[in-house]
Design a binder for these strands. Structure first.
Length: 280
DNA sequence: ATGACGTTCAAAGAACGA
């Protein structure tokens, strides 16, 4: 199975590009972020014509996540336990949840498409929200991977954190002093990746960014950030056979500011390549 | 340079993004 994640920055502005890429790369499952529309506004026909069904979670023009699949789409959820909400100018435990998470089971794999809050600035309430959101995600990940160790589990999406110094090639993003690279965000990411999932792309693709700002020739200068990840449980990581960051999708007409990240799985291997199969 | 780019909507600037 070929499974990918892509912050599309408005699916209505980019459905042609996205579906063309899915077909060209023979992708089975795509986790999308920042669709920026409600389900009734989503260009479903373009995906269905290419053989994909959809699970969509969008409330308004902000955020929005979806999963496209041609290998089934079951048990859809649009929030994880403890997922905090946010409302500008308001505080408290019961604020409305934003459209930042959707999960589905695809060919036996439990997959989340996630758009982690941006944080805005280190002094902004949105930054606290970001850290709280990640902490709740960490607890859910710990519980899910412990409860179902044999089921491949993945968190895919735009995490809005550059976990290591080499993930930041943008001089405007200052280590420790702006969002995406602050110690607290990096600690939150480290705790997530210590809670039963690991980055399955980095060992296979050690270098490269996944996002470049539209402004200031950031892409031609290659001043980007690596902030889009595929994290997988042991049962997921054990069946990964290849991974790639599709930098060329930042080129050409009307690109998203993010590029897709693709992983190939061999779900038939069972992840026990070193254990001989015994027949009869 | 409090910008530069791109997307959205209450449709002109504001909000948001990272």
């Amino acid at each position: 199975m070929r499974i990918a994640t892509w912050n599309v920055n408005s699916i209505r502005a980019r459905s042609g590009r996205v579906v063309d890429w899915l077909v060209r790369e023979d992708v089975d499952v795509l986790a999308m972020q920042e669709i920026k529309c409600k389900p009734e506004q989503f260009p479903i026909e373009a995906f269905e014509a290419a053989g994909y069904e959809l699970a969509i979670h969008g409330l308004n023009q902000w955020n929005g996540v979806a999963i496209a699949s041609r290998v089934g789409l079951d048990d859809v959820e649009t929030e994880f336990p403890g997922m905090p909400g946010f409302q500008k100018g308001h505080e408290g435990p019961d604020l409305p949840r934003e459209a930042r998470a959707i999960a589905a089971t695809v060919d036996g794999v439990r997959a989340w498409s996630l758009y982690v809050p941006n944080g805005r600035s280190l002094a902004d309430p949105h930054y606290v929200y970001k850290l709280d959101w990640l902490a709740a995600l960490t607890e859910h990940t710990r519980a899910e991977t412990a409860a179902h160790p044999e089921r491949p589990f993945t968190l895919m999406g735009d995490f809005n954190i550059a976990p290591f110094d080499e993930d930041n090639g943008d001089p405007a993003v200052i280590e420790g002093a702006t969002t995406h690279v602050s110690p607290a965000e990096r600690t939150a990411f480290a705790e997530l990746t210590g809670a039963g999932v690991t980055d399955v792309v980095r060992p296979l693709v050690p270098e490269g960014y996944t996002y470049w700002d539209y402004k200031q020739l950031k892409f031609p200068r290659n001043e980007g950030l690596r902030i889009d990840f595929v994290l997988g449980s042991d049962a997921f990581a054990d069946v990964v056979t290849s991974a790639s960051i599709h930098r060329n999708e930042r080129k050409g007409d009307a690109p998203s500011d993010h590029v897709p990240v693709l992983v190939e799985l061999d779900l038939d291997s069972g992840g026990d390549d070193d254990v001989p199969m015994i027949f009869g």
